[in-house]
């Protein structure tokens, strides 16, 4: 089984971003960048399947600027076999990303595509589902457990009411949730070795996909600031405040 796994370079999840005062977007100057956390879980799942003898090759793909080479190197250090960077400086919409991915799938012919369930910058949670639809492959989103059984997958998904365990035939698309596994930190020798692994760089324009954005971002605004209220002195005071709030909620309904 061959696995294609995706990795996006995003503002690190621990960074609290600021909206530019002119409303044109988010200020990313000097922000620490790293691999989207959900993608780390996808890469870990792919590498673990290879180590368990379930996968023959793990190819990691990133779409983004030259600097996205970093996240590919991270995935290679974690154990992926080779990397592909589709280079573009444009901020592509998820539909364009999914269409580029579909082209790569046609070339690479993987049996399984693993992606993070969402990226922590645009929080879209689109690409895996879009890719499955474009390829007409079955999908399992929000995966918290994954096993391979012959030509089928068994996936446990985190859904609104609890958990749903499903079986789907390969080839398939799976998107990873955070409880899927614990991603490894690559040891230094692996980091050194990653630089020797093959990494192909392709221009986004060479795939013949319409990359023009469909949506217009009119402006980006910050959330309403919340003011800190008083620190109460006793449980009795807390109970009294809560009683008052509960009474006004009951008054509304």
């Amino acid at each position: 089984m061959k696995i294609l796994v995706t990795a996006k370079r995003v503002v690190d999840h621990a960074v609290r971003i600021r909206v530019r005062p002119d409303g044109t977007g988010v200020d990313k100057t000097n922000a620490r960048m790293s691999m989207n956390p959900f993608d780390r879980h996808a890469v870990e799942a792919a590498v673990a399947l290879k180590e368990a003898g379930r996968a023959s090759e793990v190819v990691v793909l990133s779409i983004g600027p030259k600097a996205a080479t970093d996240v590919i190197l991270t995935a290679l250090a974690m154990g992926a076999d080779r990397g592909v960077l589709i280079e573009t400086d444009a901020a592509l919409e998820t539909l364009a990303i999914a269409r580029l991915l579909a082209k790569v799938v046609a070339e690479e012919q993987p049996d399984l595509v693993l992606l993070g369930k969402q990226a922590v910058d645009d929080d879209a949670s689109h690409v895996g589902q879009m890719l499955a639809a474009l390829l007409d492959w079955p999908q399992a989103t929000f995966a918290s457990a994954l096993s391979v059984d012959g030509a089928a997958l068994e996936v446990t998904r985190e859904v609104d009411f609890g958990r749903l365990t499903q079986r789907l035939p390969l080839p398939a698309v799976v998107t990873a949730d955070l409880r899927l596994n614990t991603p490894r930190n690559a040891a230094l020798p692996m980091v050194m070795k990653a630089r020797q692994k093959p990494l192909a760089v392709r221009a986004a324009a060479e795939f013949g996909v319409d990359l023009a954005p469909r949506l217009i971002i009119e402006k980006v605004t910050p959330p309403a600031e919340r003011q800190q209220g008083p620190i109460l002195q006793s449980v009795d005071e807390l109970v009294a405040r809560l009683r008052a709030d509960l009474a006004s909620i009951e008054g509304m309904t």
């Binding site: 919409e93 998820t94 539909l95 999914a98 929080d123 879209a124 949670s125 689109h126 690409v127 895996g128 589902q129 879009m130 890719l131 499955a132 639809a133 474009l134 999908q139 989103t141 929000f142 998904r157 985190e158 859904v159 609104d160 954005p213 469909r214 949506l215």
Partner: peptide
């Protein structure tokens, strides 16, 4: 934006060649 909506809507949009707006 539930586990049902999030699961189906992006793929529906891709099938129809539409860029969805979610959440």
């Amino acid at each position: 934006s539930s586990s049902l909506g999030r699961d189906v809507i992006p793929g529906l949009a891709a099938r129809l060649g539409v860029m969805p707006v979610t959440d």
